[in-house]
């Protein structure tokens, strides 16, 4: 409980514990961006476009609608946490290989939605892929290449949920 206007919030971001001093009404989206996780984008700001999607305790959610104070003690994953330019996740490679990236603004959110899908369901059907991406709007690449990218990454998680890199 906190009665003044600044409160401390602790959560785990991409596997590391982080402590923030926030206002009770702050959005998680802003707190993350301010902390340097700039893969989290602001699009519509009202939960429709999916540019701000992060994984909250493993589930994709729109961070523009989540008060930062709500994630006390939770685990957050952003795209920075699943791969790097030098060591991308197989799913990220698949997005690149299939040309599923154009302006790139929606890409982090789309990748995280795809990531959550493939982690829980390594071999999804076409409809399951479409459904998993139903909260990610794209206004340049479109959706066909993204669907192909997710199809191409099927099986990128091993049975135990661990990432399976190329050649493994």
């Amino acid at each position: 409980m906190k009665t003044d206007s600044i409160m401390t919030m602790t959560c785990e971001i991409n596997g590391s514990e982080s402590v923030f001093h926030i206002h009770p009404g702050d959005r998680l989206l802003d707190v993350l961006r301010h902390a340097g996780f700039i893969s989290v984008k602001e699009g519509c700001g009202d939960g429709n476009c999916g540019a701000c999607i992060i994984l909250l305790d493993g589930r994709p959610v729109n961070s523009c609608l989540v008060p930062a104070a709500r994630v006390e003690g939770c685990a957050i994953t952003t795209v920075e946490g699943i791969g790097t330019p030098d060591n991308p996740h197989p799913l990220q490679e698949s997005y690149a290989d299939h040309g599923a990236v154009q302006c790139g603004f929606c890409t982090p959110g789309s990748i995280l939605s795809s990531y959550a899908l493939l982690r829980d369901n390594p071999h999804p059907t076409e409809n399951e892929i479409k459904r998993a991406l139903d909260g990610n709007a794209c206004r340049c690449t479109g959706y066909v290449k993204k669907l192909a990218a997710v199809r191409g990454a099927r099986g990128c998680f091993a049975a135990d949920g661990a990432n399976r890199r190329k050649g493994e």
């Binding site: 409980m1 009665t3 206007s5 206002h23 009770p24 009404g25 008060p67 006390e72």
Partner: peptide
């Protein structure tokens, strides 16, 4: 920073 509830000064989690 933008706020979801700009007027909020207190946050409780019962």
């Amino acid at each position: 920073m933008a706020k979801l509830i700009p007027t909020a000064t207190r946050y409780d989690r019962p």
